[in-house]
Design a protein around this nucleic acid. Sequence first.
DNA 1: AATGAATGAGACTTCATTCAT
DNA 2: AATGAATGAAGTCTCATTCAT
Lengths: 205, 205, 205, 205
Amino acid sequence: MLTKETATRDSDISTADRILEAAGQLLAEGGYEALSMRKLAAKIGLSQAAIYRHYADKDELVGRIVATGYAELVAMVEGIAAKGGSPEEILAANIAAYIEWAAARPVIFKALLLREIGPAGAGVEALAAGVARRRRTFGLLAEILERGMAEGRFARADAELTAQALWTAMFGLASRVVLEGEVPPERRAALVERHIDLLLRGLRP
Amino acid sequence: MLTKETATRDSDISTADRILEAAGQLLAEGGYEALSMRKLAAKIGLSQAAIYRHYADKDELVGRIVATGYAELVAMVEGIAAKGGSPEEILAANIAAYIEWAAARPVIFKALLLREIGPAGAGVEALAAGVARRRRTFGLLAEILERGMAEGRFARADAELTAQALWTAMFGLASRVVLEGEVPPERRAALVERHIDLLLRGLRP
Amino acid sequence: MLTKETATRDSDISTADRILEAAGQLLAEGGYEALSMRKLAAKIGLSQAAIYRHYADKDELVGRIVATGYAELVAMVEGIAAKGGSPEEILAANIAAYIEWAAARPVIFKALLLREIGPAGAGVEALAAGVARRRRTFGLLAEILERGMAEGRFARADAELTAQALWTAMFGLASRVVLEGEVPPERRAALVERHIDLLLRGLRP
Amino acid sequence: MLTKETATRDSDISTADRILEAAGQLLAEGGYEALSMRKLAAKIGLSQAAIYRHYADKDELVGRIVATGYAELVAMVEGIAAKGGSPEEILAANIAAYIEWAAARPVIFKALLLREIGPAGAGVEALAAGVARRRRTFGLLAEILERGMAEGRFARADAELTAQALWTAMFGLASRVVLEGEVPPERRAALVERHIDLLLRGLRP
DNA sequence: AATGAATGAGACTTCATTCAT
DNA sequence: AATGAATGAAGTCTCATTCAT
């Protein structure tokens, strides 16, 4: 918005973005309480006050991190659904993509999904009833399941509940991958494959 | 205010234990950050310094709480396996018990498995190869699966990998229950049931 | 947002004046501490730095407001004396006007007479001997008293001392009105009336 | 409450009291906003945190100062009323004592009466209607006036309003004495005398 | 076994001001 | 004449911990 030259130089990342990134890192490392304005300022080599020029609040800062990361995730899921395919294929692709996304962005994943974000993001709510209506990703998931059930490819069951069961299972693997950090890619691939197989078999009529 | 003679049975709980209990309560109510020595001291009517007579550190205090909780978990899992039953029954009971345990002790769960609490959780490693040999709970899980496969009740597959897939799925649900906190018990029960059903069906030949 | 051509008469108030006015408002609402350059800038839709183009300092800004107010006070007192009337009438009018002025400009009053504002109020000295010669307002007051005494309307006494007694009494009421802030106008009027009555009776021979 | 030796040694002033005194000084010098926990701690050579062992809040601290000072003042006024005498004598004694008290304790006087004390003491309210019922000192003052009126020594008038007029006048002199600081005692005495004379004459029928 | 007092670090946030553009 | 960015100091308060008694 205020770049001086059009050439995207390395130091061309806006201060606001540098703050955002550093904050995400702190958030991921130790949660909401570990993200302190002091540490944050030190990390990016600015005064504490400087941060407040870019974000009104600690809460605004955290809120932005959450929103940004979440948007990315949603886009990914929607992309997969849009590409089409059988329900099984779409689900499998989704699970695989989700794990890979988490493995590639451990910082955001932790910040977004493994932490109680404090007063700001109020935290992701995935288990409540009605989540399929309120949250895009769950809505999509439930739709695919319903389609599969209608086509006789999946056993009949409460679609939302099933979506949540699938999602939590997938979330569990992603969490462990992120938390343990050092899982070798081949091992990860094997785990993902077994996971997908187990879940898709579980859906069968 | 406190007894000085052994006679008064009622308040005969050692100070150390009263501290432990109060600390556990604070921990459960608001997490690690909400457990402050100040508040703890006030809660039990002692001076802050007095606590240090009994526990060297905040970390020692928390460590003790966590350790106690973990022992409980292990005992529970072993108890279920010992009680016998079909592999399906044992698995189902294990999953259900695990989730309930997590829901009842969210702080310990977080400390142990989500690495939220400082130096307490040494770091669970669940995804590495060979974990079935190194960790009791995984060993038990793999054994049950192997038995089920041998008996033709489960589809043949790598037992360790399958144990990990099962465990991560179950872990995912437990995590969400703990992280979201406010899931009503009936909802939780429904989720657990669907989860178990999905996973057991997934194992079928 | 602001005019660029002289034609648009409506918004032709100089920026400096808009700053002054907004600052006076903030000052009046919450006192010296409530006047922050941040809020001031926001109020007039300028950047903080812009203010410094017009006023070197927060102190200069406040000083200007105070000086303006003080000039007003002096003019008022002189105007009343110039209008003529009996000594009693002039004194009564003066007291009433003083209180009203204070009530209308509490911040300036505080700054000027209660030394509340930083380096602004140079320090009024009213109790020293000889003040009737050094300060205009006291000189006028002493003159009126002397005239009243000469005309036999007031009891004979040291004119300067009497002027100081009158002035401190009046100052006391003004101070309270300003400090308490929320005195309703009718109550204020009643107090002023009683005050005037008491003091004028006290002067009688 | 916790002195170690009964002998009142110089260093025997409790920390709590040292805090109180230093705080009163800061309060008097610059008002509520100038009393900062940082400055206060520095002034008494303690850490900031130490203050909070003795006073829960800045507000509690300020509240205590106000309460202490006020109690002293009330005791003085009551003592004078109890000694008896004609209404004129009592009033004269009160005015004189009030000014001397202020001159002797400028710090407390300023803190107590010349500042808007902020959220804590809510400030002295002397001008509101009904203050004679709510505040001891005003009640006493109004009583004396009523007695004088009943005895035909004072002109009939609203007693509360008259009490307020008297009090504000007296308060004005006290304020100036405190604010100007360097008034020589003889001058002060002359001013007090003239003040008393003026006001008592003003009350005459 | 327990206490009162104290500490140094750190939490979030706001302040007046400056500087390059 | 005005801006966005930044700063150092200061604001209140809480933290875990220590120490002499």
